[in-house]
Amino acid sequence: MDIDRYRKRYEAELAKAAVPKPRQRATKAATTGKAGAAARAAAIKAVPIDDDDLATRVPDLLATLRNRKEATTVRMAALQVLGALDFLGPRFSPFRADYKQVLRDVATDPRATLRESAIELLAIGKDPYAQDLLVRGLERAEDAVVSEARALQFLGYDDHADYAPLARRVYRRATGAAREEALRMLATDPQSERLFTRLLKDKSEKSSIRRISASGLQSLNPEAFERAARRIVADDDDYNEIRATSLAALAHGREAHERPADPKFVDTVQKLTDTTRSTALRSSSRRFLGSTET
């Protein structure tokens, strides 16, 4: 048997069965004709796609997305429609391998918005190619395809913490959003427990860093978080915002695990409720006290 000839014949039969219907032809005209980019992008997003249309529409959308000569708005519209189709489950399965390949192609596209969207979609699926690309960019700035903060955020979709050593390096050298994202990523790294404890207690740190540290420590070691949070809540010299966040997290922990309350700490919180001028702190205090009334 001539396998190539057999395959071509089989594919030709399938293609024949998928001849475009009148509405499909109209759709193709609207999305690829001489209309302006905005109109074509709108048409791509507006045209509903039936199951019967998938075999013709998806390849068109993939071609549009991959076409570097096409306007960004049109390609972005194609990407958004494909991203929605990916949720169809088995009905989109026949196209998933091609879709991922096109996303990988767009992941190194010259246009930043497309590149970032494609990489994010791949990273959500824990795609190894996208993860390698992101790691490479964090290790060598000239190879970066997205900002450091976005790269860390995307790598963080995989909670396997394989990139914790890299996140620690970025945390030490970065400032602003990248430093915060590096910390968020370390919330799945047990070796970072001490770092979170130190940052949570450090009154000179930004409140955003301390909030991320509270969340990270609570995830890695709830008991250690509880000890640290109680000290912060009882410390009148600490910022009310952090005290309120800590107390809300303690209340949440109590609601989730139904642990017995410490009467001395309940008393501290009761006094806080009566004396604080901070609305946020009063609200968190009431929630905490509510969680002890069972």
């Binding site: 395959r7 399938l14 088995p90 026949p94």
Partner: peptide, 14 residues
Amino acid sequence: GEGFSTAMRAELAL
């Protein structure tokens, strides 16, 4: 069943 591309259907047929 559903879920296979045209090329994969050809491979399965082979």
